[in-house]
Amino acid sequence: MLSKLVKYEFKATSRTILWVFLAFAVIAAVSAIFFGNLVTQAEAGGTATDTGGTAKGLAAVLLFFAYFASMAVMMIVVVVVVISRFARTMLGRQAYLTHTLPASREQLLLAKLITGSIWSIASTGLVLLSLFLFSLREGGWGDMVKGLREMAAEGSPIGQSITLLALLIVVSATAGTLMFYAAISWGPNLLKNRVGGSILAFIILYIATQIASFIALLGAFSGTAMDALAAPGADSAMDAAAQEELLADPSQSFAISFSVSDFDSMNYLLGMQTILWVCFGVVFWLLARYMLRRKLNLA
């Protein structure tokens, strides 16, 4: 049953999404190929081929914007397609069909979650891939990416960071999709206007996650800073000046601990965020399931 549901979810959403993926991929490829060259040529253009240089410079800027615009469009389209599919099939006209299929609410939610998350992760993946492609060429992006790769070669815990980052991307894509689903399921119960209610629900959930994140991270970083303070001589030891700063003003703990050991802190941060998002995801799942089971309110 679940695999059948997933099949239909993909069928319904793939056409539009694959087109924007293709559009982005093409623009990114074109940008990767030409952007680097254009910048170098524009810079090297000098006085002899002034007009040529300006034109190339202009083209470079246009490509630059095209790249970011298509990225934004891709991200937006993925979100829009996924949530409109959910809204239409779970609460709109087709809801009568969906909810009388011999599938449990959990199966329906899960199928849509799998599809939505995969599209979300895929779009992020495409962006990262395009950045990686840029790194193979000369030019601004490339240097930064090259720099990171050099650091990895030197042995800093960047490998860990990348794994954690990947994990965070997957978890936040999943939980983020669930956040939309939960908001859409809750919406009709908040306000008479379904769309308005869903937007309100989303805002409430968003604010709640921000507050929860802030509290959690604050707590976590105070902890780290205090630990570092209590164990001088360890890897993440702080120098005397930093210690004095911290004792003088504990609210600075975040800033201070971050400067102590960049990657350790970043990994800690990534790990914290991941755990947070897992918790959020669980809450959103339970909320969506409760709303769909007990409070289903079809037109």
């Binding site: 006209r93 087709q94 809801a95 009568y96 069909l97 009388t100 299929l101 011999p102 599938a103 449990s104």
Partner: peptide
Amino acid sequence: PGVETKKIVSYLPDCMYFD
């Protein structure tokens, strides 16, 4: 009413339920 009953119930709602 649940998954098992939906297998044996055929429902015609009073509105159009096809996309």
